[in-house]
Design a protein around this nucleic acid. Structure first.
Length: 471
DNA sequence: TCTGGGGTCCTAGTGCCC
DNA sequence: TCTGGGGCACTAGGACCC
């Protein structure tokens, strides 16, 4: 999908069509998730600090991501891909590989082109958004083709032309070559794919290590035999928060870790998983990041057990100077729940010992349970995130254009209307309430699959993610 | 300028067991 | 009893991806 989050917002909000739109974290430490093509003209791009984006494009619309909406659109596109082939490998919410041969949707270049062209039309019809398709004989080349096809295009890499196409390209084109490896290669005098091939496999292994060296050399020769894998098991589940202001208070750090542990367990349980290894992540004031982990005797999804492990790990971390990010994760996953009996028994014993002494909450992780850690934020304060849908008793459906100083500004429009008018209300106006997003195309019903085809949904998103790479 | 969140994979060091 | 090596599990960090 092309500039996916931003395109979805433009489709949902007629007044933003043709305008610079930036989606990402709006806090002081936010970064850009996606910029519309209109915003990219100003130099705004993904992963850029939001403060920098605001300087480059001060008049752009800045919105927070609405993952529920993107997930629904993603599921619609996934449905279209699965109609082409049983072998669909999602890479993210907006990208996927499809093995067209396995689905007998294509058997030669002409039929592949036809299938790709029809897919693009279908995506547009169903979602109202544009997608790009790359067609090639391997995943690596299909991905490169789809990048070249953006926005709103279709590119085929014909068999026999791969080496000539790849040769002059930057090493950064190859998957797995990021800033660090790119620099490493550049210092060795290697900047193009051709130069990787000329350097030879031994040199690549010497420079980058065994796995990376072999893989990169093969890619440079356009060799990529990786199959399209429809089912990928989740390996870890984690949550993390970056704080607007560094936390110095050790007690507060401890409370945040407990909250994160609870959130992580909720995600774990929603996915029907349990895990053995608890990981604590701390990013300090100077951006140095460290992780500490502990492996239990058996997998658990008990919030008390995870909280305790995370607290133990925190004890070994020096947080003087302040922390900007905290995270809690669980790995070593199992798709069954075999409780850590020892830890549970211990927790129970401790709870019994503590009974009467204090009112520390126990295991509150039932459906819909709230965080047990006291919130620092005053309760009942209504939040109006920029870009979120609202409904007003009198004016109907709209979205939050901005809020602050006790006021919220709403633009009243829908995906099917003309650009609408703006009105401002008090943030506690009872006539105003948050609303679910409307479908981008009138009459389409998002296909909330029950997992009857292919793999059962895992992790929080139900099921993962798509693009137009076709192998 | 000042760097999110949720993942995966790889490497290297260490300790333990046989 | 001591030593060494292989294999494995665990831990920590880094790079990369979207």
């Amino acid at each position: 999908m092309d500039a996916f989050f931003a395109s979805a917002e433009q489709a949902a909000k007629p007044s933003l069509r043709g305008k610079a739109v930036v989606v990402g974290g709006l806090g002081p430490r936010g970064v850009v998730a996606t910029a519309s093509y209109e915003a990219r003209v100003f130099g705004v791009h993904s992963a850029m600090p939001m403060a920098q984006a605001r300087r480059l494009a001060p008049n752009a619309a800045y919105l927070v991501p609405r993952f529920a909406l993107y997930r629904e659109i993603s599921e619609q596109v996934m449905g279209l891909l699965r109609a082409l082939s049983p072998l669909v490998e999602p890479l993210s919410l907006d990208e996927a590989f499809v093995d067209l041969e396995a689905g007998e949707a294509a058997w030669d270049e002409a039929s592949a082109r036809l299938a790709g062209a029809k897919l693009r039309v279908d995506i547009r019809t169903v979602t109202g958004l544009t997608g790009s398709v790359g067609l090639a004989g391997s995943k690596m080349l299909a991905k490169i083709a789809s990048e070249q096809a953006k926005p709103d295009g279709l590119v085929v890499i014909e068999p026999g032309t791969e080496r000539a196409l790849l040769g002059p390209m930057s090493v950064r084109t190859l998957p797995g070559v990021g800033p660090a490896t790119g620099d490493h290669l550049r210092r060795a005098g290697i900047t193009t794919v051709d130069e990787i091939a000329e350097a030879g496999e031994d040199e690549l292994v010497r420079l980058l290590g065994k796995a990376h060296g072999h893989a990169l050399y093969a890619m440079a020769l356009a060799h990529d035999e990786r199959p399209v894998v429809a089912e990928r098991e989740t390996k870890s589940v984690s949550v993390e928060d970056t704080y607007d202001v560094d936390i110095h208070d050790r007690m507060r750090v401890g409370l945040e870790v407990q909250r994160l542990a609870d959130r992580c367990v909720r995600r774990l349980r929603d996915a029907g998983l349990s895990g053995r290894t608890i990981v604590l992540k701390v990013r300090r004031y100077d951006f140095s990041t460290l992780t500490r982990s502990e492996t239990l005797r058996g997998p658990t999804d008990d919030p008390g057990v995870v909280r305790e492990a995370a607290a133990r790990l925190l004890e070994a971390v020096d947080t003087t100077g302040g922390v900007r990010l905290l995270g809690v994760g669980v790995s070593g996953l199992a798709d069954y729940t075999q409780e850590d009996l020892f830890a549970q028994a211990q927790a129970q014993a401790e709870a019994e010992a503590a009974a009467g002494e204090s009112a520390v909450p126990e295991h509150p992780d039932e459906e819909g349970a709230q965080d047990t850690v006291p919130e620092q934020v005053p309760p009942a304060e209504r939040r109006w995130p920029a870009g979120h849908d609202v409904r007003h008793a009198e004016y109907g459906h709209g979205w939050v254009q901005g809020s602050g100083l006790g006021r919220v500004t709403v633009r009243f429009e829908t995906p099917y209307s003309e650009p609408g008018r703006v009105r401002t209300f008090r943030t506690d106006d009872v006539a105003l309430e948050l609303a679910d997003p409307l479908p981008l195309v009138r009459g389409t019903v998002c296909d909330r699959r029950g997992g009857e085809v292919g793999s059962a949904p895992r992790a929080e998103c139900g099921w993962p993610r798509p693009r137009g790479g076709a192998a």
